[in-house]
């Protein structure tokens, strides 16, 4: 990649990664499930990283993967898994015709932007980063030079931003305990006093074919036990269907009318 010229390889990389990045961005907005959205962002981020590397900015590309795809996206996924999300996003429009209007405005804005930029950049040739990268002996050195000269103040005050963000997260989530911590004994007394389910909940059903947490345990009468599947999965309606043959087999087993010869699959 010499400065000023865009080679065939770079053109191919651009069209492939650019398309994937746009698909990821659209998928993030359109998909109904939060986890899918998060994965779509990861797709966009990785493709952007490849584009950065192709544009002779390897450091930015690597940071993009490590920080965004690696750290931030994985944190998103962890949070989604721990908190558990209700799948039923409200799709009711509170303002009538809002979605159509937003769509029209969005398309209109994109046309304006693409036409304007396409027009303005038609004659422009690319300069490339060769000169900038070689000025201080490399991409990373060049960045370091800028960070500690021209953008020193911006770099320093970013600290204020990070402190605020960390403190904000704490303000919104940190619960302070105003009551004394309960002892083991008090906790267990409370559990029994409630009279619902003092012990552990039943584990998910584990068969030769499934051992996933979304498989409900079967009760002796062949019905499934809701208690055996984690709450978030139930809320999302992600509980696995049980094969009727299995249920039939178990019912026969428990009534003593059959042997295990059916379990040869």
């Amino acid at each position: 990649m010499t400065g000023g010229e865009v080679g065939t390889g770079e053109t191919i990389v651009f069209w492939v990664c650019g398309t994937l990045a746009v698909i990821g961005a659209l998928g993030m907005v359109i998909s109904r499930k939060a986890v899918h959205s998060a994965l779509f962002i990861a797709l966009t981020m990785i493709n952007l990283a490849i584009l950065y590397v192709a544009n002779s900015a390897p450091f930015l590309g690597m940071v993009q993967i490590i920080v965004y795809t690696g750290a931030v996206m994985m944190l998103f996924l962890f949070v989604l898994m721990v908190v558990g999300v209700d799948a039923s996003d409200s799709l009711i429009e509170t303002i009538k015709g809002q979605r159509v209007a937003a769509l029209l405005m969005g398309i209109g804005f994109s046309i304006l932007l693409i036409a304007g930029l396409g027009n303005g950049l038609m004659e422009t040739s690319s300069i490339g980063l060769e000169t900038a990268n070689s000025a201080n002996g490399g991409n990373v050195e060049g960045l370091a030079m800028l960070i500690f000269t021209d953008y020193l103040i911006a770099f320093q005050v970013t600290a204020a931003l990070l402190i605020t963000a960390a403190m904000g997260a704490m303000i919104l989530t940190h619960r302070e305990r105003w009551y004394p911590r309960k002892t083991q004994r008090e906790l267990s007394e409370e559990r029994f006093a409630a009279g619902t389910h003092p012990g552990q909940l039943p584990p998910p059903g584990v068969y030769a074919r499934h051992n996933a947490v979304d498989t409900p345990a079967l009760l002796p009468d062949g019905s499934t036990s809701d208690l055996s599947v984690p709450e978030p999965l139930r809320a999302r309606d992600d509980v696995r269907e049980i094969d009727t043959d299995d249920i039939e087999g178990i019912r026969k087993l428990s009534s003593g009318s059959s042997t295990t010869d059916e379990g040869d699959r």
Binding site: N136, G137, M145, F148, T149, L152
Partner: peptide, 8 residues
């Protein structure tokens, strides 16, 4: 590469 810290 020669680094001159910016005057503040």
């Amino acid at each position: 590469m020669n680094f001159t810290p910016p005057a503040i």
